[in-house]
């Protein structure tokens, strides 16, 4: 999904850069005030590193096409949506400047698509799914997977909107939407699978750190043995 330089015209690229910059600035404030504390901070670093590593592994989705994890929903469920935006922004910036993966003038576009749209759509869907599933920790990976499945075609759909507004080639919108959403639904299946496995691992090891479960899961009964006289 990394948009290269040249797909969108300058005004559209600047507009996405401004929009992404605004959300990143707000996310810095929100993350420091509401999401990052002494206990969860290490997980934020680990999530960014995992997203970078997993994005290197393209999986085949058929007909000579591949996809890779975006990791937006995964990050939002584990460390909170604002911190997820920061994780994705760091990963996308390192990819653009060090690896020439995703354009430099398109960095704002890529942050907007993967670091904002995918994060908030994924998080919103995950929260909605959590609200209807039983209040158990085992619901969290399912909700994260559902959010991630929707987040990928959602980001693809927003790209087609940007391309309709400021794309450099006159492509009819119908076929573009059909192709982008169709392929990214397939990629979303892989995204959901990886998200389920990754979130399950953290839920198994450190359920206390999972952002989306904060205050929503019943407290465990702590049984202390009576002192032996």
């Amino acid at each position: 999904m990394h948009v290269p330089d040249g797909f969108l015209d300058a005004p559209t690229s600047v507009a996405t850069m401004v929009a992404a910059g605004g959300v990143v600035a707000a996310s810095l404030v929100r993350a420091s005030r509401h999401e990052l504390d002494e206990r969860t901070a290490p997980l934020a670093g680990l999530v960014a590193v995992f997203v970078f590593a997993a994005q290197m592994v393209n999986f085949p989705v058929g007909a000579g096409t591949s996809g890779h994890l975006i990791g937006a929903s995964l990050a939002a469920v584990l460390v909170g949506p604002a911190t997820a935006t920061l994780c994705l922004t760091v990963v996308l910036s390192v990819q653009a400047f060090l690896f020439a993966d995703g354009g430099v003038t398109a960095l704002g576009t890529n942050v907007l698509l993967m670091g904002v749209i995918a994060v908030w759509v994924g998080y919103g869907v995950a929260r909605a799914v959590l609200a209807v599933l039983p209040r158990r920790m085992s619901s969290v990976p399912l909700a994260a997977a559902a959010g991630s499945f929707v987040s990928v075609p959602a980001a693809a759909l927003v790209f087609t909107g940007l391309f309709a507004a400021g794309g450099v080639a006159p492509i009819p919108l119908g076929p573009l939407v059909a192709a982008m959403v169709g392929w990214h639904l397939l990629i979303g299946v892989g995204e959901a699978l990886i998200t389920f496995l990754a979130v399950s691992s953290i839920v198994a090891a450190r359920p206390d750190l999972v952002h989306a479960a904060r205050g929503r899961m019943p407290a465990l009964q702590l049984r202390t043995p009576e002192p032996v006289a």
């Binding site: 096409t65 392929w183 990214h184």
Partner: peptide, 18 residues
């Protein structure tokens, strides 16, 4: 061992000609 095929966006860009 990652797939070397074009990703979803590259594939769409190739097939629709942009």
């Amino acid at each position: 061992f990652a797939s070397r095929h074009p990703d979803g966006l590259q594939h769409v860009a190739q097939s629709l000609g942009f």
